[in-house]
């Protein structure tokens, strides 16, 4: 077995890459003209988010995000968007105000987060990740499955609702 020595720490590289992917595809979701591309880039947002979760040491949440959010939900959005015709071009509105509001909220949040993190120092690696899967498998497995089942029935209900013919 060989040790790989990278000049740049690989974790930082992955972090930078996925953060850039996250922000760029978030902008593309809003600005692209085609709905299908927008839904596709929403999927990219979910993927990059899952990578960020895994980087913070919470692999189970990353996997859950991949299976439920990217694999099912966003696919469902994509699947539905494919059925619409492409939207007509809407007449442009004055967007600078919206941009300013968005930037203001982002700045406020960033400042707030910074003030929170200034108070308490960082700590070591989380230890809860080791016991949790065993707990889920042994104690909460059936409960988790029932939650899944409920969510699934909601989804099916929604599908049935959408498929019903409109009588008019």
């Amino acid at each position: 077995m060989i040790e790989f020595n990278f000049l740049i720490p690989i974790e930082d590289t992955i972090f930078l890459f996925s953060a850039a992917l996250l922000l760029i595809s978030a902008v593309l979701v809003i600005e692209l003209r085609s709905h299908v591309y927008a839904a596709f880039f929403l999927e990219m947002v979910g993927l990059a988010n899952a990578v960020l979760f895994a980087l913070q040491g919470l692999a189970l949440i990353a996997i859950f995000q991949l299976v439920v959010y990217v694999g099912a939900t966003v696919t469902f959005i994509l699947f539905s968007v494919l059925m619409f015709k492409e939207a007509k071009p809407v007449k442009p509105r004055f967007k600078l105000l919206d941009l300013l509001i968005g930037a203001g909220i982002a700045g406020l949040l960033a400042v707030g987060a910074f003030s929170i993190y200034k108070v308490s120092p960082t700590a070591g690696k989380p230890s809860l990740d080791v016991t949790l899967p065993e707990k889920i498998v042994s104690e909460y497995g059936l409960a988790l499955f029932l939650v899944f089942f409920t969510l699934l029935t909601t989804l099916i209900e929604a599908l049935v609702l959408a498929r019903r013919e409109v009588s008019s």
């Binding site: 299976v67 990217v70 696919t75 699947f79």
Partner: peptide, 11 residues
Amino acid sequence: ALMTLYSSFLL
């Protein structure tokens, strides 16, 4: 999880 990504790209 990686297997479930298949269908959206096929779409």
